[in-house]
Amino acid sequence: MKWFRSATISAVLLVTAGCASTSTTEQEQWIYPPMAVPLQASVQQEVQIARLTQLLQRADLQDEVRAKMHYERGNYYDSVGLRDLARLDFNQSLSLNPAQPDIFNLLGVYFTQVGEFDAAYEAFDSTLELDPDNSYAERNRAIALYYGGRIDLAFEEMSQHFERDTSDPFGALWLYIIQSELDLDVAKAELKARYDARSEEWGWVLVGLTLNEISEENAFKAILVGTRDNTLLAQRLTEVYFYMAKRYQQEGDFASAISLYKLALAGNVFEYVEHRYSFLELSRIYNQVKAEQLAQAKLDAKLEAEEEQQAKSNSPAQ
């Protein structure tokens, strides 16, 4: 993709994000995209995993306590990207105490990420049966319906979810993403109206970026100037790269979208849905491009066969 150009903020980017310049001109520099140091497992996370593993070996634990420990260890596994181990712990916890809506919600996200949509719907339904006011499960179920190709249902559910909190920029973004599959012009107009009534919350920067109301340069400047903590920097960049990628993907610029999804993954912010769904989006692009290439190959073969047939029919009899 084309990385942004800037003369006014290049010094900030070079100092804050460790970016390297590819040009020495004073007026304008091409620079690499800003990056955070990829997050790594902390000593505390590793110690907690080891401690819980040791405690779970005790035979005198009550089922309620054991279920809680499996849940806690699963959360630690998830936070360091060990999702299969986390899923095993969550299932163990549910087998001991099935009334845990938060675990069903997490499992639903896992199922969505790997394309097991029916299992995801069931998991989110279980969450909402146990906790009808769980707004995260509402949003996640609508997103699962979107990725599962059930756009009308996804739009209906996300609309209902957003109406409960119209100040939520992430709800506005996902409602736009889903609605754009039905009517792009209407989706843009409604998102613009919500953006015009925005608050100062960080997420509205992402909405402005999606609408091209905020340039990429200014979005990165806002992140880098206002963020000194590496963990927060990694989180913000994961979000901005994901929603930028969605915009480029919508525009048909798959090369840029792929690069940006990979950047969204680069910070190791495993707990963010933007990190989780970047894998799914990359698979969708691959499958779409593969299908288009296959369709084009079939069309080319058909045209070639027709040309050969036409040439034979036009040739003089021997």
Rank of each mutant, 00 (worst) to 15 (best):
L232K: 14
T227A: 06
L232F: 03
A219R: 01
L224K: 07
R228P: 00
R236N: 09
G226Y: 00
G226L: 03
A222N: 06
F242R: 05
I214M: 12
Q235C: 06
K221T: 04
T231G: 06
R236M: 00
K246P: 01
F242T: 08
I214T: 08
M244W: 03
V240R: 04
F220H: 12
V225M: 05
L233D: 03
A234D: 07
N212L: 07
Y241T: 02
V240L: 08
L233N: 09
I214F: 13
E213H: 14
Y243Q: 02
K246N: 12
L224T: 08
R236T: 01
T238H: 14
L237E: 07
G226D: 13
T231W: 12
Y243I: 02
D229I: 10
L232A: 14
F242Q: 05
Y241F: 13
L237D: 09
A245P: 09
I214W: 04
L237G: 08
A219H: 00
M244N: 09
T227R: 00
L233P: 11
A234T: 09
T227H: 01
A245G: 15
I214C: 01
V240C: 06
Y241G: 03
L224H: 11
E213K: 13
F220Q: 07
E239A: 07
I214R: 12
Q235T: 13
A222W: 10
N218Q: 11
L233A: 05
T231R: 15
S215P: 02
Y243E: 04
E216Q: 13
